Each structure stands twice: as structure tokens, then as C-alpha cells.
Deep mutational scan, measured.
Amino acid sequence: EDDHHMEFCRVCKDGGELLCCDTCPSSYHIHCLNPPLPEIPNGEWLCPRCTCP
């Protein structure tokens, strides 16, 4: 699979289990988001950068 997502968290710059945005290459740990997510959501997810007006 050709995955163009970042291999590190945009916030802390560390790797591991990352949540990938469905519209851009950004990846995040769920605990690095503000507010943090309790678990990885099902379905499409947009990062804070893509949901800002």
C-alpha cells in the first residue's frame, strides 16, 4: 500500500500508534490531540489543521 502519511506525531515528533488524517499527510497520537481522544475513532477522521475554519 502506498501510504503518504507522516511516520511520526505532528505534536511530539515521536512514532508509535498514530491516528492519520483522511485529507492530509498529518499523523497524531490520540493523547497529543487537544482535547485528547479516549480511543482511535471509527470511520473518517480529520485532523485539527483540516477542521479549522
Rank of each mutant, 00 (worst) to 15 (best):
C47Y: 01
L46P: 04
S26H: 13
G16M: 03
L19D: 05
R10C: 12
N42W: 06
F8G: 14
G15N: 07
D2M: 15
L19Y: 06
F8M: 10
P41Q: 07
C9E: 04
N42A: 13
C24A: 01
C21N: 01
P35Y: 05
H31Q: 11
C20E: 15
G43E: 10
E7F: 12
S26R: 12
D2W: 05
E39P: 08
F8N: 11
P48L: 02
D14A: 10
D22K: 15
S26Q: 14
D2L: 15
H4W: 09
P41H: 08
L19R: 05
K13E: 15
E39F: 11
P48T: 06
E44N: 14
L37K: 08
H29C: 05
G15F: 06
E39V: 12
C32V: 00
N42R: 12
C20N: 15
C50T: 01
L37A: 07
L19I: 14
K13M: 07
C50V: 01
Y28K: 01
G43F: 07
E17Y: 02
F8K: 09
P36E: 05
H5C: 14
W45C: 02
C12L: 00
H31T: 11
N34A: 10
D3E: 07
G43Y: 06
E17H: 00
P41N: 13
M6L: 02
H31L: 07
M6Y: 03
E44K: 14
E7V: 07
E1R: 02
H5N: 12
R10S: 06
C47I: 02
H5K: 15
H31G: 12
L33H: 02
V11K: 12
G15T: 12
R49P: 07
C50Q: 01
H4R: 11
M6Q: 03
L18A: 02
S27M: 08
H29R: 00
S27Q: 10
H29P: 01
C52S: 12
Y28Q: 02
P38A: 12
C32Y: 01
N42C: 10
K13V: 05
H31C: 11
C47E: 03
L33N: 02
H31S: 07
T23M: 10
L46A: 11
H5G: 14
I30G: 09
H5E: 14
C47K: 03
L37P: 13
G43H: 08
I40A: 14
E39S: 13
I30P: 13
L46V: 14
L18H: 02
L19A: 14
D2H: 11
N34E: 08
G15L: 04
H29L: 00
Y28E: 02
N42G: 13
L18N: 04
H4E: 09
E17K: 14
P36G: 06
C12R: 00
L18I: 05
S27G: 06
L19G: 04
D22P: 09
M6N: 11
C12Y: 03
C21I: 01
W45N: 04
E7G: 06
E44G: 13
E39G: 11
D2F: 15
L33A: 04
C9W: 01
P35G: 05
C50M: 00
C47D: 02
P41V: 08
Y28V: 04
T23A: 09
